[in-house]
Design a protein around this nucleic acid. Structure first.
Ligand code: FES
Ligand code: FES
Lengths: 148, 148
DNA sequence: ATTAATGATACTATAATAGTATCATACTAA
DNA sequence: TTAGTATGATACTATTATAGTATCATTAAT
């Protein structure tokens, strides 16, 4: 049971990298090189991100990818939805039609609660969140070195 | 992304049924019949439950299964662990060795928090919980009918 | 002995994830 | 206008996880 599959994970890495390049276009080759991710696989991911409107793509020489939206509008949940579908923990087998066991339904209700809590924890996470917290970590590192 | 796979789900159903029969042995055939679950598949599940010490099995004519532990000692989390492995949302790709992207690690920390919250929500759920809440639901139904 | 039950184990099927390859298209620059 | 470099669309393959089946051995009751 994974929360993120590999393509979502790679998408986050790629988008983070692109975001760092503030407007400069980044090619799939560069990303693949820097992030050590298979070029073909990454290309597929980027094509999806482009189709879904998260990045803007430029073809041909000098082309590549840019963020199509500001980092605080790129939500982790959107990436999850794109690459993994909706967060639905509860695959009801009988779809409420003649559930053979009311106890199971009670359990499913509990699972729905868990699902809601996952979603509300994921909801506020954007690309910007991740980039900012990184800066915080680095700031702290520097501070520690100074006071030592 | 499912929280419970089919075998865990079936295990819950089977254990619930067995629990209702207060000490009487229940055969795989009866369970399969009543719960509308494939006999072969259910048998495999029961064999695992038996091997793991959750049910006590009696071979031969008149045999079958009984709970090997009181219902309040059969934890949903144990079933999940048995049939699906540990609840680990966070499959780190590089295992903290030269993580190529500190932002990802920040994300992973958030995922760990989510994982903890799932576990703490699952932790108190036992077979007894499910059986009791079922009774509560039925009690309420009866009450509603009376006051109507 | 026969029948009815589970134990152990190996096998098959399906679906989800992960990854690769190919050709078409667009843009740039010489 | 052509060579080179980039993405777009799409189809294909590989691997893993889940789901499900089948077979034979063993045990117990009658
Ligand atoms: S209706 Fe789906 S489990 Fe009860
Ligand atoms: S160490 Fe695993 S993602 Fe950073």
């Amino acid at each position: 049971m994974k929360l993120l599959t590999r393509n979502t994970d790679y998408a986050v890495r790629a988008l983070s990298y692109i975001a760092m390049e503030k407007g400069k276009t980044v090619t799939a080759a560069e990303l693949s090189e820097e992030l050590k991710i298979s070029w073909s696989f990454l290309r597929k991911i980027l094509q999806i991100l482009s189709r879904e409107g998260l990045v803007f793509s430029i073809k041909g020489k000098g082309g590549g990818f840019k963020l199509a939206q500001p980092a605080d509008r790129i939500f982790l949940l959107d990436l999850i939805n794109i690459f993994q579908g909706l967060v639905r923990l509860n695959t009801c087998i009988t779809n409420n039609k003649a559930c053979p066991n009311i106890r199971i339904c009670i359990l499913k209700k509990k699972i729905d609660i868990i699902e809601d809590s996952i979603i509300s924890e994921l909801h506020p996470i954007t690309l910007k969140t991740l980039l900012n917290e990184q800066n915080d970590v680095i700031q702290n590192e520097l501070l520690n070195m100074q006071t030592r």
